[in-house]
Design a protein around this nucleic acid. Structure first.
Lengths: 247, 247
DNA sequence: TCCGGTATGTGTTGCAGCGCACAGAGTGGA
DNA sequence: TCCACTCTGTGCGCTGCAACACATACCGGA
């Protein structure tokens, strides 16, 4: 599915692809395939084998684990800062977690084989992917800690902020039900907390749409986890170009 | 600190080192340094830079995150199946989490520079390390999910089993206080649950020592998380030799 | 414009786990 | 041998969140 002319797409909208040097990017670019990533699409079932790695541009993918009883929790999110499918180059091919599209949009994909060819050169693409993977691990760790120690309100704010960071606007299309399943909590809990946040003027929402009005306000309601993840992503990927010998 | 004669040490006690082919291992072996890893030793502060990667043989290292208010939680454990310091070859050099010795023992360490030399060959050592890192990520994910959805009893059993898998005997030297801080829960909660488990004949303990009497019983008290992690480690590392071209 | 399905709001009840306080019991060192 | 310290056991009230049960409001399509 191709984008409309009115919305120009370029692989460089993905920060990882944007961080590649001209020649590294050129090698990959011819193999990048623009694809639509509609809300709810299951990119990878638990234990399923990916055929591609996905570089979201406007879409957001959620990595989550579904338990035997059907309950689930998001482990990490992947937006235009990242890539889905690290298990391919990590050598495991599959993971026990699932990947579904949490916010519809577009992205580029690359055949696993083509990635590995670049990878086997042990070149800049590899170093970049590994750095990103470490950032992803930080996100997972922090999710674990946050689940243990912080209130649902703090976690909701963290999640909103992390999601917002991956979006161009301050509105996200998302039902409370869906958010609840991401955080692995009850929908009613989200309703109550979202109501409070709205009353405080931090957000406004209507049936499936949430608009963040006061970003700083949300940050004051969240826990340190948001900041830890954000800073770590920045630290690991800010000088991605430098890491490739640009500096 | 060198081991006593009565307890022979060999790098091959660490499963990752054991999985290396003879020539890969030979290249590394001369640089491996046997070290004592006493209980409580801080191998890496938050944000601190490791100078070595550590391959535990009899020791167990705990990766945990300490929050601003002092509360903490274990994110993952590292025993003779793994290696501490993946951030070095992942390219990030540091992580926000800390590493301390949870069970005293020994291990081998390798200077970061020497590892990277091997690594830059993009050889079997690299592939093995990446596979292990993926297994570590599974452990982190599952910790997050478990923290969200499962009871302290289930988590305690999971933790006991995962720790036991890294030990030669069925006894672990560990106070309830320490276990509580690992799981990020109250000490009293551990006391109560441990009491129940003892009454049921699954474990027995005395001041700082826990002996597992009925492994299968513990497994029936734990959640699916233990199995997921165990199976994933097995899947990723069982054919470590095959992955290097042995097969 | 209406209608049906879905999203949201609200209350009630129950419980797991927390925070606090303190009592006993083991253990290692002097 | 005794002492001091740490580890373990127990009770209490409190709170955040779950489970369940509805009521209501919204929205998009026929």
């Amino acid at each position: 599915m191709l984008p409309t002319q009115s919305v120009p797409h370029t692989p460089r909208q993905n920060h990882l692809l944007a961080a590649l040097s001209a020649d590294s990017f050129a090698r990959l670019a011819v193999n990048l395939e623009l694809i639509a990533m509609p809300l709810g699409a299951a990119l990878c079932e638990s234990g399923g084998q990916l055929q591609h790695v996905y570089f979201p541009t406007t879409a957001i993918v959620s990595l989550h684990y579904v338990m035997e009883d059907g309950a689930s929790a998001e482990i990490a999110g992947i937006g235009n800062e990242g890539v889905l499918g690290v298990s391919l180059f990590m050598g495991g091919n599959t993971t026990p977690s699932q990947a579904t599209v949490q916010t519809g949009g577009h992205g580029y994909r690359l055949k696993a084989k083509q990635l590995m060819e670049e990878f086997d050169l042990a070149g800049p693409m590899m170093r970049l992917m590994l750095r990103y993977t470490q950032a992803l691990m930080t996100q997972m760790s922090q999710t674990a800690v946050c689940n243990r120690h912080h209130s649902v309100e703090q976690q909701l704010c963290r999640w909103l902020l992390l999601t917002l960071d991956r979006l161009p606007s301050n509105e996200l299309t998302m039902t409370q039900e869906l958010i609840a399943s991401m955080l692995g909590v009850r929908r009613e809990g989200i309703t109550e907390i979202a109501g409070n946040l709205q009353r405080e003027g931090l957000i406004s929402y209507r049936r499936g749409h949430i608009t963040v009005l006061d970003r700083a306000g949300l940050e004051s309601h969240t826990c340190e986890c948001y900041d830890v993840v954000k800073k770590e992503f920045h630290r690991l990927l800010k000088d991605a170009k430098a890491a490739q010998g640009f500096a």
